[in-house]
């Protein structure tokens, strides 16, 4: 394992921001950390980066423990949510800043920097001030600046939260491409489920500083380990016997036993409210021609945690 994190603890007064957090990551793996606001995602990332002093726990990278090292001495680089670009430097100077501490000659650094500029599709912008760039371009600079120092582990804290939906999508693809080019391991914090589902090899779900579940996207969605995970990922119909996801219920035309009581057209799908003698359900269906008042049958498999 490239990264081994064991029993991290961090408290702020009475508040446990990290509570016995442990996980591992393989080389080239992308791990997404998902959870509600205030659950400790940033704290986790900052403790890996060396900006938060841990109460206890160990962090190993490549078999060496790094939790005692200062931030600047760790083989880890961070892309921050607000980027933290240096506004008084050009794009290229931002990108090559880290090489200064790796014994590069200025000329070699600039050459290396230009390779990064091209890799990230920033040609033509290298001499601009970073303040003249768009949000997406700034994001790329922040990424390039972190990647150029060849960290073993790249940390990203909600890197796409300032971007609009379309840009997010292309940046996700960009990130996957970068992972393949540089063969880098990433821990990626987000509270956008879609980020996690589209790029993560594995997802960590956090709540109140605890790690609730870790696993592939399918695993955590289909086999949630706790009520929290179940409710946090997607919508759910709960009953005494268990739960069923809205898209796992099939409406049967000409069937009996249930009645449509509400319908919302959502574009490429429709969302129905259906009642039977046991209760009411939210149902998501690609078919949009059921009408309110219509009697239908329900097919579903109730699961339990």
């Amino acid at each position: 394992m490239l990264v081994e994190v064991k029993n991290l603890n961090k408290s702020y007064g009475d508040l446990k921001a990290l509570d016995q957090v442990s996980f591992e990551a393989e080389k080239q793996e992308i791990i997404c950390v998902l959870g509600p606001s205030g659950c400790g995602k940033t704290t986790l990332l900052q403790s890996l980066g060396g900006f938060v002093e841990l109460d206890s726990g160990t962090i190993m990278i490549d078999g060496k423990s790094i939790e005692k090292l200062a931030a600047e001495d760790r083989p880890v680089a961070t892309v921050f949510q607000s980027y933290g670009l240096f506004p008084h430097m050009s794009v290229l100077d931002n990108i090559i800043y880290g090489l200064k501490f790796r014994n590069y000659k200025k000329k070699a650094a600039r050459q290396e920097g230009m390779v990064m500029v091209r890799t990230l599709g920033l040609e033509g912008h290298e001499n601009k001030k970073v303040t003249q760039l768009s949000g997406g371009q700034q994001q790329r600079v922040a990424l390039g600046r972190a990647l150029i120092v060849r960290p073993k582990l790249l940390l990203l804290d909600e890197p796409f939260s300032n971007l609009d939906t379309r840009l997010r999508d292309s940046m996700r693809q960009e990130l996957l491409r970068i992972r393949d080019i540089f063969g880098i391991t990433m821990v990626f914090v987000t509270h956008d489920q879609e980020d996690a589902f589209s790029i993560a090899d594995r997802i960590i779900l956090m709540n109140h500083g605890r790690l609730e579940q870790i696993g592939g996207a399918r695993d955590v969605y289909d086999q949630p380990a706790s009520d929290f995970v179940l409710n946090f990922l997607g919508r759910t119909n709960l009953s005494d016997e268990g739960y069923v996801r809205p898209e796992a219920i099939r409406l049967v035309r000409g069937g009996r036993g249930a009645r449509i009581v509400g319908k919302v057209f959502k574009g490429f799908y429709s969302q129905y409210t259906v009642e039977d003698d046991k209760g009411s359900y939210q149902v998501i269906s690609l078919e949009d021609d059921f009408e309110v008042g219509q009697e239908v049958g329900l097919e579903m498999e109730i699961r339990s945690i």
Partner: peptide, 26 residues
């Protein structure tokens, strides 16, 4: 913006470099 300092540190900049390259110019 303290993020700049953390960013510089995460790239390997020591205190003196951060002060000279980032803080003082700004």
């Amino acid at each position: 913006d303290g993020t700049m300092i953390e960013a510089a540190r995460s790239l390997g900049a020591k205190t003196s470099s951060i002060l000279v390259d980032i803080v003082l110019p700004l």
